[in-house]
Design a protein around this nucleic acid. Structure first.
Lengths: 186, 186
DNA sequence: AACTTTGTTAAGAAAAAATTTAACGTTCTG
DNA sequence: CAGAACGTTAAATTTTTTCTTAACAAAGTT
């Protein structure tokens, strides 16, 4: 490795990796992932497997910081724990298939959105329809309740669609409509 | 409005609205929107139009806070400024079509992800292929460069797919595959 | 059973983000 | 043209989040 060509090549490999690591951790920020966790993931992306100590050394972070960040990455399924026979150290592998991460993250997110909002809508709809059906209530308020009711009803179209989207992703049906294009020109 | 029925009805309408406002601002948090901005949007959602003063009063926030939050909401196209002839106050309307917000937000986000990462990948690929083609470099490093190159190449399948997804959303072709279901049972 | 090694909570410190008060600029009105 | 009404920018405060050091718990080894 004292070969001057190799030294230069090693530098260039690191530079190439850093480009991509930077970009990945920058865009993961869009997914509600903190920069630190993004860097951890992006670093692991180029390695076959790493344990907490190796990561800590590579990134100069503290042990608990690694621990919590890796846990978060596990929750969104971007990192998996690998059973390592005969070693007490936990070793992890980065999920390198971005389709998997995409599916896990957005389905989880959208499902929560649908559930939270539909639950609230159902409660609100009941309260509003009680008013609409109450003849003692003034016309003005009845109309307001009616308007809100219609608005909520309209929004359900969206939440149902979002739910269908989640299912088509989970079932991978979406790839029939939008195929993964394995053969790329450039 | 001193009618006791109406008083009760008014309370109940507010309660129904609050349910939904709470849910919306909670789930908007998933979209990188701060709770304050979420509340502003959700409040406007039930109104035809509002100006900054009305919102400030309704939510008990400061004037600059309103100003900056509304601007953020405009950026992600969840709120639009409405030209109001003869008034110096700016009035705003909430985008009530969630499909529109969905499309604007995710297309913007995914496009940035594709661009940032593809740019980095192109640079990295050039650096790596220079090493791969350099015969003076040791076999070991050549192999490492080759591995990274393959990894990046593989990831391009995903970014191309994401790009296609964005286009199919922008062009609304996606609704041919996943129709908006206007007639809902429940 | 005592000692190591590894990972995780807990508590405190540092950093980052959001919010408010205050000052400013602009545009309309009298 | 002076004054008022709105909105925005700047600076400072408060709140939230993140990170680190330190104490702890679990599991394994000698």
């Amino acid at each position: 490795m004292t070969n001057p060509h190799d030294e230069r090549a090693r530098e260039q490999i690191e530079e190439a990796k850093d480009q991509v690591i930077q970009a990945i951790s920058e865009t993961m920020d869009l997914y509600g992932v903190t920069p630190a966790a993004g860097k951890i993931y992006a670093t692991m992306y180029f390695e076959n497997q790493m344990n907490l100590d190796e990561m800590r050394e590579e990134l100069g972070m503290s042990k608990p910081s690694m621990s919590t960040n890796v846990r978060k990455l596990q929750q969104i399924e971007m990192v998996k724990k690998k059973f390592q026979r005969g070693s007490r150290k936990h070793t992890y592998i980065a999920e390198k298939n971005f389709f998997h991460s995409f599916m896990a993250y957005f389905c989880q997110m959208w499902e929560r959105e649908v559930k939270t909002n539909m639950d609230a809508i159902h409660i609100a709809e009941n309260q509003l329809s009680a008013i609409i059906q109450d003849n003692e209530v003034s016309e003005e308020l009845r109309e307001e309740a009616e308007n809100h009711y219609q608005l909520l009803n309209q929004s359900k179209v969206y939440y149902h669609w979002l739910d269908k989207l989640v299912h088509s992703i989970r079932s991978e049906e979406i790839f029939e409509f939008l195929p993964k294009d394995e053969t790329l020109k450039n």
